[in-house]
């Protein structure tokens, strides 16, 4: 590990991991307590459609994907709210539609052969200064929104009907949460990839939720767990020359199962 931090790309990777862990810890807690993991998965995969559009029309990738993902999040959120019984089907549809659109547009893009795998698993070693700035802005925005509306987020996430009854504009809050999830996913895709985003939005939170007595403590603990998973996974991947994203996911899942087993034995 000598000279580990001598390389700019390694420094950026570490900074990126720290920022993405906190974004995932916070946003993932909202995703898990609202039971919208599938919906978030659908937004994450649909983001690939945004990537395809950006390449085909020669638009900036991050901005285009942000718009596309926010629209996908809004549509899938609207459809699942409106037709609750069919929500799973809508989620699956948007999930597949985004991926298919991305693949077709990538195929049609003249002279360009985008690597699908790089968007599925990401590559922390390609994180640039711009990515770090965007992540920092997003994290600040999320924190400000959360600090100003913490009680509302807790109430709406815990009991939507009650929130409506006492006069909260639940739909608006719900859509703001979905857009926050969409933007986070887009920012994180380049750093971590679609698959790792979903793992980091769910595994640390599933470990933290059992140990916390408040949403805020769950967010903090999830962020710390996500950071530990990412750093340890990153070091293992660096040491054994493995794919970073996949190593972090495997390490996280193994820890999750050990944790579940230990809890089960304790009971």
């Amino acid at each position: 590990m000598d000279g580990f931090f001598d390389y700019i790309f390694l420094k950026n990777a570490i900074y990126g991991i720290i920022l993405s862990s906190f974004i995932c810890g916070i946003v993932g807690s909202i995703v898990v307590v609202n039971r919208i993991v599938s919906l978030a998965g659908s937004i994450a995969h649909a983001a690939y459609g945004g990537v395809g559009i950006a390449f085909y029309f020669g638009l900036p990738v991050t901005a285009t994907t942000m718009v596309f993902s926010s629209i996908s999040g809004f549509i899938v959120g609207f459809l699942t709210e409106k037709e609750n019984a069919l929500s799973d089907s809508f989620i699956g549809m948007i999930w597949a539609f985004g991926m298919a659109l991305g693949i077709i547009l990538t195929d049609l893009t003249p002279g360009y052969n985008a690597d699908l795998m790089s968007y599925l698993f990401g590559n922390v070693l390609t994180i640039t200064d711009i990515d770090l700035i965007l992540s920092g802005i997003l994290l600040s925005l999320i924190l400000i929104l959360l600090i100003l509306n913490y009680k509302t987020v807790v109430l709406v996430s815990f009991d939507k009907d009650y929130s409506r009854v006492v006069g909260y504009r639940v739909n608006i809050i719900y859509y703001i949460m979905l857009i926050m999830v969409s933007l986070s996913i887009v920012i994180l895709i380049k750093m971590t990839g679609i698959i790792l985003v979903m793992a980091m939005l769910t595994i640390p939170q599933s470990i933290a939720i059992k140990r916390c007595k408040s949403l805020s403590s769950m967010m903090v603990l999830s962020s710390i767990i996500a950071l530990l998973f990412s750093i340890i996974g990153f070091i293992i991947a660096y040491r054994f020359n493995l794919s970073t994203g996949a190593t972090i996911i495997l390490f996280s899942v193994i820890v999750y199962f050990i944790d579940t087993l230990v809890n089960y034995v304790k009971r």
Partner: peptide
């Protein structure tokens, strides 16, 4: 029945 029992809240 309409509540989330696993929600982290005191």
């Amino acid at each position: 029945i309409s509540l989330k029992r696993d929600f982290p809240i005191k």
